[in-house]
Design a protein around this nucleic acid. Structure first.
Lengths: 131, 131
DNA sequence: CACTACATACAAAATCTTTCGTTTTTCCAA
DNA sequence: TTGGAAAAACGAAAGATTTTGTATGTAGTG
């Protein structure tokens, strides 16, 4: 019998909801629903289902307050950023982060300040590393 | 009546196939199929279907040679890298590329070499910039 | 020619994702 | 206490993606 592998990545809609939850810190289904993009028209039950799925998959947790659940993210935005970047790097940049940065820097006119900021970050990182 | 919007992004499997085609430059269904990951077991007709879908969606084109189609990418890897980075930046980094790079270099998995490579890239960029 | 090997074409099964409707539960105010 | 408003639970419809089987076409060979 085959064990269903734990989901690593969020689906489109799951990411949409996690993003709102990250913004909120924590919130009920109704809170999250209210924060969706203006045009977005989604039944309350649909939103509730998505939150329940997110919990099943282990991306969020909930505690009951009165009769309603309050959700909080278990997966942090930072962690998911890292995970997504790693995935993109593997799938599209031959696992060479430098080429990813190269493409990014070529595409966007990053300000001198932004570039300097990043470089300082690198310097600090390189100093602290002992390996 | 609603016009079906042109697909912007590749699905999981489509990306898998495009990646092989980018490596090959051009190739038949059989060529691409042969290049898939070792464990990957997929019927020939499945591969053919995927290539046909890629063509329908405008990501590749084909020319008939004898009785078989030879496919070539219309969407370049570079262009798709750009598109994907932009999407990731929007969806997960508030559209600020600098924070994306910051997260990337914060990742502990990066080797010293990779970090140095990125730094040199930035140095060159900073020297050439005139603004 | 007609046989064979291999290609394309396409409908549809299988699976995963997204959305919703109905039923059940729960709190609270009258 | 009980009736109503709002939430949760859940099955399943609707939709998209992935995979396959069957039918059909075509080039080349004896």
């Amino acid at each position: 019998m085959r064990q269903k592998k734990k989901a690593e990545f969020l689906t489109e809609v799951e990411l949409e909801f996690m993003t709102r939850l990250w913004e909120l810190g924590e919130g009920t289904v109704r809170d999250v629903l209210a924060k969706l993009a203006p045009g977005r028209d989604l039944a309350y039950t649909s939103a509730a289902t998505i939150m329940r799925i997110l919990e099943q998959k282990g991306f969020v947790t909930s505690t009951k307050q009165g009769k309603t659940f309050v959700y909080r993210a278990l997966l942090s935005k930072d962690a998911y950023q890292t995970r997504s970047l790693k995935d993109l790097s593997e799938k599209l940049f031959d696992n060479t982060p430098a080429s990813l940065v190269a493409r990014l820097v070529d595409d966007n006119d990053l300000s001198k300040d932004a570039l300097n900021e990043i470089r300082e970050l690198l310097d600090r990182r390189l100093k602290n590393d002992t390996d």
